[in-house]
């Protein structure tokens, strides 16, 4: 289990990184924390000819809140650093909460927020959280910059809107919908990828839910947002009826996959159990 041969560059500027990445004859690929990529290299499931390490590009290492109150997380920001950042904990606790479920601390110490998003394992936590938080993604390539919404960012399993010669330079989170949030998942072992998981974000106004976001991971090739459930909850308090209604809608909307860990049926049931738990927790957090 050793990687095949490749070359390595650690450019000191974004321009240089983009230039290196343009060398698609060598199948250049971005390397950040490497916690998803290097296992694939070791198993020779990925065979890039050139790795472009972007963690030494100064403009990618930022984590800050801009004047409009949006959180910017640069491509080189490690998951552990993001989860520990006071501005994240205060304003985007769902993001910190999702990160806490990623692998083990030893992985989060190196893995980056953007790396996990670009890798896009459908069972991963951050894609679901970023969709729930309506994140926007800044992508830089030979053609310049573009911004993509979370709806458009995730294309399919292990596929995103980021082209092979492009870099996700940062992910930007608008202010969270409200104080209500929860990230819950089913794992067999602590630290595993979620068999199924859910991110919930909501606000509470006059004892009613607003701006409800319900997004599942592990429930399909993409993070699955359930607008039916969201709108059923919108504008009402979280009582038993609301909970059961949303759970039923989510159950009907999901078409989860099966694998060695769980059947589709179990995932659907598990998603519903999690949703009950997560909505309750998110609602209680707003009290």
């Amino acid at each position: 289990m050793k990687p095949g041969p490749f070359d390595y560059e650690a450019p000191a500027s974004l321009t240089e990184a983009v230039r290196l990445l343009a060398d698609q004859e060598r199948e250049a690929k971005v390397l950040a924390g490497g916690q998803s990529l290097i296992p694939m290299l070791n198993m020779r499931l990925a065979r890039p000819g050139l790795l472009v390490d972007i963690t030494r590009v100064p403009e990618l290492s930022g984590l800050y809140v801009d004047e409009a109150g949006h959180l910017h997380v640069g491509a080189a920001v490690r998951q552990a650093a993001a989860a520990a950042a006071p501005e994240v904990r205060a304003g985007w606790p769902l993001l910190a909460g999702a990160i806490a479920h990623i692998g083990h601390p030893q992985i989060r110490n190196r893995g980056t927020v953007c790396g996990s998003l670009v890798h896009h394992d459908p069972a991963a936590e951050l894609p679901a959280a970023s969709l729930a938080l309506e994140a926007r993604f800044t992508i830089v390539g030979p053609g310049g910059n573009r911004t993509v919404t979370a709806e458009d960012f995730f294309v399919s399993t292990f596929q995103t809107a980021v082209g092979p010669d492009e870099i996700l330079t940062e992910v930007v989170f608008p202010p969270a919908p409200g104080d209500g949030w929860s990230f819950a998942e089913h794992v067999q072992r602590r630290g595993d990828f979620a068999a199924v998981g859910v991110a919930v974000a909501l606000a509470r106004r006059q004892n009613a839910m607003h701006r409800v976001r319900v997004v599942f991971c592990g429930a399909g090739p993409l993070p699955v947002r359930v607008p039916e459930a969201e709108s059923a909850l919108e504008g009402r308090p979280l009582d038993a009826e609301a909970l059961e209604g949303a759970t039923a809608l989510a159950g009907a909307a999901l078409d989860p996959p099966k694998d060695v860990h769980a059947s589709a049926e179990w995932r659907r049931e598990g998603a519903q159990t999690l949703l009950r738990q997560a909505l309750t927790e998110a609602w209680e957090r707003t009290a």
């Binding site: 198993m43 067999q188 072992r189 602590r190 630290g191 595993d192 990828f193 060695v260 860990h261």
Partner: peptide, 16 residues
């Protein structure tokens, strides 16, 4: 064989 890594063949950790 379908459980060929430690991601799929689940040795329990201290938490379990």
């Amino acid at each position: 064989p379908t459980t060929t890594t430690y991601m799929d063949y689940l040795l329990p950790t201290s938490s379990e």
